[in-house]
Design a protein around this nucleic acid. Structure first.
Lengths: 215, 215
DNA sequence: CTAATAGTGTCTGTAAGACAGTATTCC
DNA sequence: GGAATACTGTCTTACAGACACTATTAG
């Protein structure tokens, strides 16, 4: 059987929440002026797709050990005589306080509001859309939102993350009841003062690396 | 940048429910004695991965227009000097009354209870496990189970499908209450007699091609 | 009349959602 | 004391689950 040769790449939608917006990290297309793309790269001798995606993300941002999950695969760039490209899309989340680090690490990357991205290859826009949908869905039935949280955080911070991603206001009392009922958080004992008002209790996630299904 | 050449294949876990078991269709490995594999094939100039998966499935089984969804992608067969293979896994469902057709179409395929499969390549066993988990999860939050149903069916048949996939007994009254509340079914007006007992009403799915998220 | 499956309603407990006032701090 | 955010509890409603008897048929 005649086989077509393929290139295979992983591309990752890296999310964070910053400035009251859900943001996506994009990387400059090398050599091209003001063109952007998802961080990613061609697959070579990596054993594992996840490893390849993590490595490409680390190369672009300097970030390791982020939450990362496979999203969907696409066949792009079809055309007679062209080499075909298979894209394995991933999405990843980093805590609020690491976003600045990603930005500074190299000057080739930048955060964009996910709803006002610059020009991207068509399939990459589709990937971002799909990733945002998956993220919003997972907020409802898993503890994925904790992946956005720094080591210590207030419940108001967490609520803000939910409101931004779901694009809807959330009732404070019901939210706290629900979150605390999960049993995943514990008080650190510390407080945060940041204005002319009562200080907020700080919490931490008991098992920060575990994303659980709930309900 | 040096590129490794890849083969890309789609492999599909085709499910049906038959003989009170969730069954998976496997295909004989050509040339090999008593070895089985998931129906699938190498990708060539297909425009779309879904199209390729459907075509490979149709080639093996003669079936078209089945419910089919992408599952996950894997990088297999790693080894120095070897050509690497990327597998895009799919899963598909067919109605109870089409399973016999798939079996008869060619003598190269057979249904197996998903819990007692013959020897398979390791990654294919993993794919089946993952597909079964996805299917069981989707039963709870979507109308995917209707994809197993023939054009007309009884509520007891439908309940049996749920019980087999979830591997748990279901209360008849609560089940009917919940299913009818979805508003996806309508009575055909017909009945089915099949024994020394009261005949069952027949139902059909209002929009058989739509799988909805519920709750 | 027996055996076998189809069909049906109520009660109870739990979880989600609506809703408003007090507490603490900084200036 | 004013402004700003943290923090807390009750009531109502909807859905999920437990539970048992009648209906209809073939033989």
């Amino acid at each position: 059987m005649q086989q077509t040769p393929f290139s295979v790449r992983t591309d990752t939608v890296l999310f964070t929440v910053q400035d009251k917006r859900l943001q996506v990290l994009l990387q400059k297309v090398p050599g091209k002026h003001q063109q952007w793309m998802l961080p990613g790269g061609l697959l070579d001798q990596e054993q594992d797709l996840d490893v390849a995606a993590r490595r490409a993300l680390a190369r672009a941002t300097g970030l390791n050990n982020v939450f990362l999950e496979q999203l969907y695969s696409f066949a792009n760039g079809v055309g007679p005589g062209k080499q075909r490209v298979i894209t394995i899309a991933y999405y990843a989340l980093i805590p609020l306080d690491m976003a600045q680090g990603a930005h500074d690490a190299m000057q080739t990357v930048r955060w964009f509001d996910w709803q006002s991205l610059p020009q991207l290859a068509f399939e990459q826009l589709e990937i971002v859309r799909m990733a945002q949908q998956r993220l919003a869905a997972k907020l409802e039935y898993s503890t994925i939102a904790f992946q956005f949280m720094p080591a210590e955080f207030t419940l108001s911070q967490l609520q803000t993350v939910y409101e931004i991603i779901l694009q809807a206001a959330v009732d404070k009392r019901n939210f706290r009841k629900r979150i605390m009922a999960l049993g995943c958080l514990e008080e650190t004992g510390g407080q945060r003062r940041e204005g002319a008002h009562r200080p907020a209790k700080l919490y931490r996630v008991k098992q920060p690396d575990v994303v659980e299904y709930i309900k």
